Amino acid sequence: MATVDLPTALPAARPSRVRGWLRHVELGVPLALLALVFGACFLWPLVASVPEPIGGDVLESNLPAFSPGHLLGTDPNGNDVWSRLLHGGQSSLIVGVAVNVLGLLAGGTLGAVSAYLGGAVDAVIMRVLDVLIAFPSLVLTLAVAQSLGPSQVNTILALAFFSVPAFARISRAATLRLREQPFMVAAHLSGTRVWRMLFRHLAPNIAPQLVTFSMLGMGIVIVIEGALSFLGLGIPPPAPSWGNMISQGQASLSATPTLVVWPSLALFVTVLAFNLLGETLRGRWSGR
């Protein structure tokens, strides 16, 4: 009698589907959170009727949530909390994006030039950056912010200046790995100019590491900006930011804790989303 061989194992299609689904989720969740935060902060005031974040009526101070015309109520100055939360998010996000863009461009360029040229150029650039890294950056940031005065532009400049060394180190390490690759050697032997080597051959290959670090750095910068604003050295009141909203809300924490809860929650969700996105991108690009 003929025998029929039964399969000893089922196909592994289901686990692969689960892994694929999880890969989409780990990227989709932080992107969805960031889309929600950016959309609320930048698009909501354009498409919906939102009160001005400053210049509120003192007679309408400390209104509870869901009061007519005030979704999250008002603060002790009569300003709409929802409006201040959205405009404060704009300030915090602009600082975070601007600092990381400036740090990426300046630090990425310095690190790539330093590693590609080598020799005395590399030694001088890296020793200067080592001196900056040796100092406690947060203390120096506080000192610089205090000397320049509280404003959004000064906050961006102070934070961007101290983010350059970290970006430069990452860029330099990536460039050193790529400098001896066959395509780089071939481009060099063909007489390609230095600027073309840097921007056409090096930049696209070191960009993933720099972008990943910038995603992780976004959360750090937003937290530091919040701390500076909390201390009165960041974005000055009455202009809102999440940091100075928390600082102002602590005065009436026992009576109206929501004045601290809402900006703290917005800060937490935004930082969490950037950190999750950065970790996901690092895992994917490191496994390429």
Rank of each mutant, 00 (worst) to 15 (best):
A9L: 11
P11V: 13
G20I: 04
R23C: 01
R23I: 00
V29L: 15
L36C: 08
L36A: 13
G39I: 05
L46I: 15
L46P: 04
P53H: 14
G56P: 10
L63K: 14
A65V: 15
F66M: 13
L72N: 09
G73N: 01
G73S: 07
G78M: 10
V81G: 09
S83W: 11
V97L: 13
G108L: 03
T109Y: 08
V124A: 15
I125F: 15
I125S: 04
V128M: 11
P136A: 01
L140F: 08
A143Q: 02
Q146R: 11
N154C: 06
N154V: 08
T155M: 13
I156Y: 09
A158M: 00
F167G: 08
R169K: 12
R169F: 04
S171F: 00
S171K: 05
R172E: 02
Q181P: 10
V185W: 12
A187L: 02
L189S: 14
G191R: 03
T192A: 09
M197N: 11
H201L: 07
A203C: 07
G217W: 04
I222C: 09
G226M: 06
A227M: 11
L231I: 09
I235G: 13
A239W: 12
P240S: 15
W242Q: 11
A255Y: 05
T258Q: 09
S264T: 07
F268P: 12
V271L: 07
V271I: 14
V271Y: 02
A273F: 12
R282N: 09
G283K: 11
R288N: 10
